[in-house]
């Protein structure tokens, strides 16, 4: 409880957000900017060279995740926020993956029914 009391007191003292806000070297932004360009070029090349199958899907998803991660972590400064905010914002979208799984099952079922009853011709 003593610990809780001290953190409470510290919290009260630190309620004002830093006056100067987020300050990071310009170089960091330029490096991330460069990487975003490179990763976008790679994504485009995946299509340009007609890569197919699992290689295509995994590369597209990899470049997409890297780009999204760089934007959120550095450009949106999530890497420097406190974990309480990071978890509150980044965990809920992860749960959308459950929704994705549900809709994959649903779409497979719909496709099966359509092929079974609409494309099979008479009878």
């Amino acid at each position: 409880m003593a610990h809780a009391a001290t953190t409470g007191a510290q919290a009260a003292a630190g309620t004002a957000a830093p006056a100067e806000g987020q300050q990071h070297p310009i170089k960091l932004y330029l490096v991330v900017w460069g990487w975003l360009f490179v990763l976008s070029a790679f994504s485009y090349l995946v299509d340009y060279f007609h890569l197919q199958g699992y290689l295509r899907w995994s590369l597209i998803l990899l470049f997409m995740s890297l780009k999204a991660g760089l934007i959120v972590a550095v450009f949106m400064h999530m890497a420097w926020e406190r974990l309480a905010l990071t978890y509150a914002i980044l965990l809920p979208p992860v749960l959308v993956l459950v929704f994705v799984a549900l809709m994959v099952l649903e779409a497979d079922y719909t496709l099966f029914m359509r092929e079974r009853f609409f494309d099979a011709g008479p009878g």
Binding site: A4, T7, Q10, A11, A13, G14, L83, A84, L85, Y87
Partner: peptide
Amino acid sequence: TLPAGGAGGVVADWSSDQRAFKSA
């Protein structure tokens, strides 16, 4: 000025008085 980070910091921030997002 801010309480500790890590998982303990998350619990402390969310259970604290007045505001949960202390750095924002």
